[in-house]
Write a protein that binds this DNA or RNA. Structure first.
Lengths: 220, 220
DNA sequence: CGTAATGTTGAGCGCATTCAAGCCGGGTGG
DNA sequence: CCACCCGGCTTGAATGCGCTCAACATTACG
């Protein structure tokens, strides 16, 4: 948790980090219906969260990487309402929510931090709603790639190269597209010289072109 | 705020309700870019919240009614990232966020309540993402109507009759559809005897049929 | 090395959109 | 009181984007 804190505050916050937990690729950190006890800070690895409709269809609601927090959905009803699945071997810090609430009554900056994390998630989801509600396939994929590479860059990775940890189907589920459409859209980007794609390895050749696709939208 | 509280706690919470504010129909409670200071509990009236893309398109992210809270988006960056527009004359309680944080350090049940409100919003948005990402027009509108009537019923209104406070275009924006599609879908429901529609007045004749539409989905 | 999972590509279709015309209802001013 | 206007709504016809279905290619993995 990268916040400005005094040493004393930091020591207090160490208290709330309970056990660490390793999650094997393909297994769940928590599942829809399970009792909610903790938030999880991702240390390493990559997750997806998804909600399910009764008929079996599911919607990926987000992809999370190191430094991000999952589990906020469970607070309202004391039970989780989505699944968190590791897309590669991962490790998380388990932060019992009781402790978080207890500590954030004493440490103002932690309280503030928790509020911001939740608000950030709300704002992020607003962005996804905009994407799902009004963008076309190319815009969605361009937005997705830019967002992903930006978050990776903030973690010290390349601005132009990335490895997708998720399948075309999972990307499609997140973006409200079928996997074939995702694949075709990738191919169009490749034809246009915007990216190189070799399976899950993506190299962005022309970031500005991606930005244009996002900004032109239907106005073009 | 309907929570179980001791008398003392209730008195403390009264402290955080600052002024009330009246919002005329068509005007904004807050706007994208404005400084964030407070959350707002809706006392009367009906709001929409919407985010804007650079090119002018906007996406309605939700409709809010009495008893619901708006403004959570502003916490992360100390500025609002969406607009809240009154769809009819409305009145809200202004709750300065400083006071909320202060008080919720002392009143455990308030702290818990604030966390639940934010988590509830996150879960609600998951549902909208599922809708936008994987449902067809009929399912979206059926889901929308059922949700609206259920929330109204919880406030003492009819289970089967409602007045839409928003235009077809606003419904469409929320559901990721064009206004013509919303209109056509309403017409289809009318043909099928599921609802009666006279402008913004809607009477649900067959709730089960709406539920079926939602649950059958593409599996049908 | 063989099998299953994942990804690519093609052809045809269908649902929602686009474009366009007309309708309804409420409000305003003559 | 009626004529008019304008925003909101409905409906029709044609288009097109993304989906479905299907075949094949590639990769991962036991």
């Amino acid at each position: 948790m990268p916040v400005d804190l005094s040493r004393e505050e930091l020591e207090r916050i160490d208290e709330l980090v309970g056990a660490r937990r390793k999650i094997k690729r393909g297994t769940t950190l928590f599942r829809n219906g399970e009792k909610f006890t903790s938030l999880y800070a991702i240390r390493t690895g990559f997750f997806k969260t998804c909600v399910a409709a009764e008929d079996g269809r599911d919607q990926v609601t987000g992809f999370q990487m190191a430094g991000e927090v999952v589990g906020l959905d469970g607070i309202v009803h004391d039970h989780h309402t989505c699944d968190a699945v590791a897309l590669e071997d991962a490790e998380v810090c388990v932060m019992p929510f009781d402790r978080i609430e207890e500590l954030s009554r004493e440490v103002t900056s932690l309280q503030r931090h928790v509020h911001k994390i939740m608000s950030r998630e709300i704002v992020r989801e607003h962005g996804v709603m905009l994407l799902l509600g009004s963008m076309r396939a190319e815009e969605r994929l361009a937005t997705f790639l830019l967002n992903l590479v930006q978050r990776l860059h903030a973690r010290g990775f390349s601005q132009s190269e990335l490895i997708l940890r998720m399948t075309r189907e999972e990307i499609g589920s997140f973006l409200g597209l079928k996997l074939e459409t995702v694949s075709r859209t990738f191919s169009r980007f490749v034809e246009d010289g915007i990216v190189e794609v070799k399976q899950r390895h993506v190299r962005i050749l022309n970031t500005d072109a991606l930005r244009e696709i996002v900004n032109l939208k239907s106005a073009g």
